[in-house]
Design a binder for these strands. Sequence first.
DNA 1: CAAATCAATAACCCATTGGCTATTGATTAA
DNA 2: TTAATCAATAGCCAATGGGTTATTGATTTG
Lengths: 107, 107
Amino acid sequence: MTATHDMLFRTLADPTRRAIFERLCRQGEQTVGALTAEAGVSQPAVSKHLGVLKGAGLVRDRHEGRQTHYSAQLGALAPLMDWTREMAGVWESRFDDLENLLKRMDQ
Amino acid sequence: MTATHDMLFRTLADPTRRAIFERLCRQGEQTVGALTAEAGVSQPAVSKHLGVLKGAGLVRDRHEGRQTHYSAQLGALAPLMDWTREMAGVWESRFDDLENLLKRMDQ
DNA sequence: CAAATCAATAACCCATTGGCTATTGATTAA
DNA sequence: TTAATCAATAGCCAATGGGTTATTGATTTG
């Protein structure tokens, strides 16, 4: 579906938002406050980004008292991997090793 | 490099532009005229999109008389695959089979 | 040479978006 | 219960970006 790819690419296109997502991927669940401390933008800006990420299915939120914990939903990246692989022309086998793939991708 | 990912995601985020790129991936080299015929937007718009794609290294152009032929540069997708794989947490082996990967990506 | 075609550029418009501050609602602490 | 903290929302503003038409430059064609 084009709409899905649209949303994924558009959501990840913003560097601040992508940085937040990367952080969640690498460090696991984080509160809004923790994310804000590193984001370099205001708390409302972070909340807005998290809202967009959530809309794209890239994160999940969990409320605990007055704080909200966010975590990455890696499964949402699948359409992105599929699309890239499809564009790269990997039709032949789902079990191609990556080295071979990279070789074919050089020009 | 963040700048590279930025450019790739931002370039591919627009549906019209991504459609042009997909077309070049699937059907190979095309003239601006041929791309315009299918794009649903004006020729200048297509030229602008091609300029952006070229700036991101995703396409190459070849001049032949008064027409310009564009083709996809699949190698430019490598950083995208790397990033996605990195976020998905595939560290262990470059030779992981994709089925296994997808299994781990379900949540 | 004159007319037509192809693609790029210029100049403009409007919608979207990412940022901010201020505020609100909810929860916890004093 | 009053004060403080956390996160979301509202409302605003400036920059960006994708679209348009008009034009230009270059190359073919008549």
